[in-house]
Write a protein that binds this DNA or RNA. Structure first.
Lengths: 251, 251
DNA sequence: TAGTGGTCTAGACCACCTT
DNA sequence: AGGTGGTCTAGACCACTAG
């Protein structure tokens, strides 16, 4: 791993107009290193003292920057061990990005079966949702996902082919796609925006989920953002919520 | 307002087993004062220096406690002005506790019409959801809520009568119920847990919302928690999501 | 101008983990 | 024993708001 390009940190006094706090500049530098995979997921960062010395700020300033990034789920700190780059573990996938839980609140990883996987040019809607140039190539994967052996979700995952070359080509797609994106493509999903509606099952969906046609389904429309804030995955899931519910905390 | 009961803060050294940090003890004291309405919503707290002197800790420790509580939406800090107890403003209601947005992402406060309001003994389910003793008295309010003039939501709000005496008795219920709870009853809602499903409209719901019977509706089942962590409101909303969607951020 | 929160520093001590 | 993050303190200076 090459030595990082060192930006110069502008002194605490306001430069000209902006006056960006030192800790925010430190955050930005570390964030950029994460984007560049200068440190790999799971790897330890240098200690507070080392970072402070390297960047020419005090330990307290580095501490604030690191703690802010822990609050964003980008880093994990463990007393006596060090500060680590967050990984897309099973637990993280389940509690941060999978929100269908059993009636008793239990969370289970689904088991997915890919029903189709295609390469083609993006539709205008896909371009708009994923911020792609017109005519860009995309990959879509359709799956049926089962919980406790019951087919419960049909979903369609759409990504840009240029960001994820060969996705779904040879290798079998794993259950935890975000970990796969991180491990195989160096792209870390950090946030997702979801938009939820109630819809009627199409005849095809009804058959795949063993429901009557027209049965109510929960549609989750999700755009996932990577570390640098760009939309990298569009996913539409249509779910049978007879045995499971979609949960959210507010406030 | 009477002088607050001053708990003694145990020195930083571990007392016996727990070793609770000073800033956490400060948070607990301030949180208890909020519960007791020692300071009212919108009112300014003493300055960091004053609190530090009163509680016998340093300014930095008070600062950490206050900032933690800002992150919990309990306090608001404004540079040059002071630290204030959060209020249930219109904005707060809209962005923290109302999650149906237009297709373009716009948020609008609904207009509600109460269709029924009843006092009765709690059902076993109501006791369980609101953590009430068997036989407790409850109040339920049913409403139809319109967005842009279109009836879009039917909901049922259930609260304990002992916590909210006379609710819905004489006075007309305002649109922002949480502000009303805070202003009239001194009960501040801080968090809510929502559980969302897709369901079929009953004939009655279909008529109220001008839909075909059996049309898909989004059901939001919400338990709202007050400052002290107790469940104080159970609300079930069934929504027409043709023109609006339920939004959530993840990660 | 005085008071508030926001940033930044320096240093002390502690708890935890590794070796 | 040595290194890490966690807590706590004290003090400086800045930016913003009010009167």
């Amino acid at each position: 791993m090459a030595k990082a390009a060192n930006r110069k940190i502008t002194a605490g006094k306001r430069a000209s107009g902006a006056a960006i706090p030192l800790y925010a500049q430190v955050e930005e530098i570390i964030r950029q290193r994460l984007i560049d995979n200068y440190w790999n997921p799971g790897e330890a960062l240098p200690s507070e003292m080392q970072l402070a010395a390297e960047l020419g700020v005090s330990q307290g300033t580095v501490r604030k920057a690191l703690n802010d990034m822990v609050a964003e789920n980008l880093l994990v700190r463990r007393q006596g061990r060090g500060t680590f780059v967050s990984e897309h573990t099973e637990r993280r996938a389940l509690f941060l990005f999978f929100n269908l839980v059993g009636e008793d609140g239990s969370r289970t990883m689904p088991v997915s079966e890919v029903s189709s996987c295609a390469h083609r040019k993006a539709t205008p809607e896909e371009c708009e949702r994923l911020d792609l140039a017109v005519g860009a190539e995309i990959i879509t994967v359709q799956r049926v996902r089962s919980l406790h052996g019951e087919p419960t979700i049909v979903d369609r995952v759409t990504v840009s082919r240029s960001l994820f070359p060969n996705l779904g080509g040879d290798v079998k797609l794993p259950e935890n796609l975000y970990r796969f994106y991180q491990g195989e493509y160096g792209i870390t999903i950090t946030k997702a925006q979801e938009s939820v509606r109630a819809v009627s099952a199409t005849p095809e969906e009804a058959e795949m989920l063993s429901l009557a046609p027209g049965a109510p389904l929960l549609e989750i429309d999700r755009i996932s953002l990577s570390l640098d804030g760009r939309p990298v995955e569009w996913r539409v899931s249509r779910c049978n919520t007879n045995q499971h519910t979609y949960v959210a905390e507010r406030g």
